[in-house]
Amino acid sequence: MANYQYMMSADDVAKELDCSKSYAYKLVKAMNKELAEQGYITMAGRIPRAYWAKKMFGYELAAN
C-alpha cells in the first residue's frame, strides 16, 4: 500500500504555502470550523488533504 497521508498538519500547510506556522494554524482552524458547521468531526491542527485541495485549488483528489 502506498504511503498516503489522509490528513495534513498545520506544518504541512505552512510548507505547502511557504508561510508561517501561525498563519497555517489560522487557515486550518478556519477550515475545521467550516467542516464542523457541515457536521463533520474535526481534529485540531489537521485537515483532510482532499478538503485542502478542494478549498485551495478548486479540484477534488481522485481515489486510487
Rank of each mutant, 00 (worst) to 15 (best):
D11C: 08
R49E: 01
T42L: 10
Y51G: 00
A2S: 04
G39K: 02
Y23G: 06
M43Q: 13
Y25A: 14
Q38D: 14
V13L: 02
A24M: 14
I47L: 12
A63H: 03
S22Q: 15
N32K: 00
N32H: 01
N64W: 09
A50L: 06
Y51M: 04
N64E: 07
D18S: 06
M7S: 05
M56C: 06
E34L: 06
D11W: 07
R49L: 04
A50E: 11
G39Y: 02
Y40A: 09
M56A: 03
D18K: 01
A63L: 05
E34H: 00
A53W: 05
G45S: 12
P48A: 04
F57Y: 10
A30K: 14
M56F: 13
D11A: 10
A24W: 15
A53V: 02
S22Y: 15
W52V: 02
K15C: 14
K21P: 10
L35C: 11
M8V: 09
E37G: 08
D12W: 00
N3Y: 06
A10M: 06
Y59L: 07
R46G: 00
T42G: 12
R46E: 14
C19W: 10
D11L: 13
D12P: 07
A30M: 09
A2L: 08
A10I: 04
M31K: 10
K15N: 13
V28C: 11
M56Q: 09
A63I: 09
G45W: 12
Y40T: 07
E60W: 04
A10C: 04
T42V: 11
A2H: 04
Y4H: 14
Q38H: 05
C19S: 15
G39L: 05
K55F: 10
E34S: 06
K54R: 02
Q5K: 02
E16R: 04
